[in-house]
Design a protein around this nucleic acid. Structure first.
Lengths: 106, 106
DNA sequence: TTGTTATTTTAGTATTTGCTAAATTAAGCA
DNA sequence: TGCTTAATTTAGCAAATACTAAAATAACAA
């Protein structure tokens, strides 16, 4: 799950948000930010290694798009967190619903 | 969205996963990892600032639990990413479903 | 070929991060 | 009042990160 490390950087998060709207070349991505093409390329490498994006070559251009692999992995982690949490609340709710209770633990 | 920066660290992710199963004191959290209580305290501070966890005092103990604020913010970002993406696939699907097409751009 | 465009890789650097050890704060107990 | 327990804060340091500038790769165009 180094996906979170990949998304820790605001520029990389911006790249992912852009790619959610459609595939873009490295240069098109670079145009959207105030840093060098080199820096963008390095960010794209991190996103690639985290499987958040994938590339295909088109002449001398590199076209980037979101990688379902990483998106699903991320979504899975978050969904799991949410579901454990939901379970807890259900349990708490059930507890509160009990008659009058002798409880108050500790 | 510094939530992703907060979750970039594997120890902090572990803390969040533990808290998804229920509230824990600082010490109970520290017991689950091989680093000092000081290091855990610093991680908890990062998670608190990102609003991923919140604390309440109980005598000299600090009880930590997941903060709905951050969990919802994170889930929201991921859901939005997913929904933009779903829209794109619907559009692509519609495109592919078209009669026979004169297309093939560029 | 030589030049141009698109992109990546390498080197070097300043900043940030995660850790430990030591000091500090604060509540409960003798 | 001290001691003990639980936790945080501070200082200092080694490792990781994000950047720029410069060099390298590679495809197309003259």
């Amino acid at each position: 799950m180094s996906i979170f490390a990949a998304l820790a950087d605001p520029t990389r998060r911006g790249i992912v948000e852009s790619l959610a709207r459609g595939a873009l070349s490295s240069g098109e991505i670079a145009d959207q930010f105030d840093i060098s093409a080199s820096a963008i390329s390095q960010h794209l490498k991190v996103l690639r290694e985290a499987q958040m994006v994938r590339v295909r070559a088109e002449a001398q251009r590199r076209i980037y798009e979101l990688d379902p692999q990483g998106v699903n992995e991320l979504a899975g982690w978050v969904d799991e967190l949410r579901s454990y949490w939901a379970t807890r609340f259900d349990a708490l709710e059930a507890e509160l619903r009990k008659p009058a209770g002798k409880s108050r633990k500790r």
